[in-house]
Design a protein around this nucleic acid. Structure first.
Length: 422
RNA sequence: GCGGCUGUAGCUCAGUUGGUUAGAGCGCCAGGUUGUGGCCCUGGAGGUCGUGGGUUCAAAUCCCGUCAGCCGCCCCA
């Protein structure tokens, strides 16, 4: 969990709201360009939703969810991932009836109860897309290419895309047995995690990092060789589309994702500079998920990417970008009580005309008010004192050139507007 | 869940083998003559040394607990 501040903090410069907005806006732009519409789902969902979709044996469900019980005795969970809530929402609102092909994107908070470290937080923000209603590998390619393009557009030049197929309920069981047969003789030499994975989720052994296990598994049968005709053709087709799109990618036979709902396509995008959490984002196809959650039989594919990891990767690559100008265009300086009152009226008028403006509220001296105007970055200072009040004018000071002029009160708005044009 | 490290002013940190009123830079505030910012000069405010306990004549400093953060493992975003 992190506080993201309005002013760039020293050190962790990525904890700055300006940067977050910039990345979010880029993501929105890309999603809109590809025909995805925004959806927002609640932070709380019924615990059961995640248990059924993500899978009982997964790390997330078995040890990483923030659970709570409400006063009605319902078991609720702070959402640990974004896909299941979206699936729940589209079923509840029968969205597929009106939009047989439904393309959605989201930006939201996820929660996982685990030990934090660089790039991994108990509350983190994910940006993601989900596309429902088509099993066409071209849609897989679209989603993957969208992700790759997004990273490229925010300047992450060292991204690497890895793809794999995790099969389907038709072909996966046979492979699972084959893998178990292969591992069985050497199971006693493997790490404790793998011993339990052997029983609970054998495929997860494939991405074990223990050196000896990696050695053992290097000769293991490949999932890609055991795909059924449908899954095999889907994967080959996906690759052809990626070639046509000129999206560089590597095949990663050991790539297995941590959720049970994935079928066929699985992919991950990594970047250097992230430490041991090198995944920027990942996703895959989930053709049985909507039906499993009580909806129509609709295939789907999506991905999620971590906001914090994007920002950290950008920092480590030294990516610069323009932050929007949040300085007030105009700063009002008032001298004395009656001038203050006139300034308040003027301030309101200026803001009402759509111009950003601000003034002092802590009783600063003229000098201090000027200092504040300078610090805030105001380009124009409007000064009202006894002299100006008497003559019905306002002094305009151009903070860039230090030139000053007087303007009749009735023409102030007009003058600010024309001044902005100069 | 396991292992390691850190915790002193708003921020980044210093603080000698335990020893007077705990320091610096930056930031903040105020002045540098009559109503004018940036640079410069001067001054000022601000800290129960994360927290609880212990050792000692004496603890920011040593020991233990606790909380928080960071880093690695696991896993993931």
């Amino acid at each position: 969990m992190n506080d993201v501040l309005p002013y760039p903090p020293s050190g962790n410069t990525w904890l700055h709201t300006g940067r977050w907005r910039w990345v979010e806006e880029r993501f929105r732009q890309v999603c809109r360009r590809y025909g995805y519409r925004e959806i927002r789902t609640p932070i709380l969902e019924l615990t059961d939703l995640f248990v059924r979709s993500v899978g009982e044996g997964t790390d997330i469900v078995s040890k990483e969810m923030f659970n709570l019980v409400d006063r009605g005795g319902r078991r609720l969970t702070l959402k640990p991932e974004g896909t299941a809530p979206v699936v729940r929402a589209i079923i509840e609102h029968e969205m597929l009836a009106a939009h047989p092909l439904l393309k959605l994107y989201y930006i939201g908070q996820n929660f996982r109860n685990e030990r934090g470290q660089k790039g991994r937080y108990r509350q983190h923000q994910q940006l993601g897309v989900e596309a429902f209603g088509s099993a066409d590998p071209a849609l897989d390619a679209e989603v993957i290419e969208l992700a790759v393009r997004f990273y490229r557009e925010i300047g992450i030049t060292d991204q690497q895309l890895q793809i794999n197929s995790v099969g389907c309920p038709q072909c996966r069981p046979a492979y699972r047995e084959e893998l178990k047969q292969y591992v069985k003789p050497t199971l006693s030499e493997m790490c404790g995690d793998c011993k339990s994975r052997y029983e609970v989720n054998p495929l997860r052994m494939l991405d074990c990092k223990a050196p000896h296990d990696v050695e053992i598994l290097s000769g293991a049968p490949k999932l890609l060789d055991w795909l059924c005709e449908d899954c095999g053709e889907h994967f080959r087709s996906l690759r052809r589309h990626l070639e046509v799109m000129s999206v560089p990618h590597q095949i990663a036979p050991q790539l297995v994702r941590g959720f049970d709902y994935y079928t066929k396509t699985a992919f991950e995008i990594t970047s250097g500079g992230l430490g041991s959490q090198n995944a920027l984002g990942g996703g895959g196809r989930y053709d049985g998920l909507v039906e499993d959650c009580g909806g129509p039989a609709a295939p789907g594919i999506g991905f999620g990417l971590g906001m914090e990891r994007c920002l950290i990767a950008m920092d480590s690559l030294g990516i610069e970008f323009e932050t929007e100008d949040e300085a007030p265009a105009v700063f009002l300086v008032a001298l004395g009580e009656s001038a203050k009152s006139a300034a308040v009226g003027l301030l309101t008028k200026i803001r009402g005309a759509g111009i950003s403006a601000d003034m002092d509220y802590v009783g600063k001296s003229l000098k201090a008010q000027m200092r504040l105007a300078g610090k805030l970055g105001a380009r124009l200072v409007l000064l009202i004192g006894e002299n100006e009040l008497k003559e019905g004018v306002v002094s305009f000071r151009n903070m860039m050139t230090s030139q000053q002029e007087t303007v009749p009160q009735s023409e102030v708005i007009q003058r600010i507007q024309s001044w902005a044009m100069e």
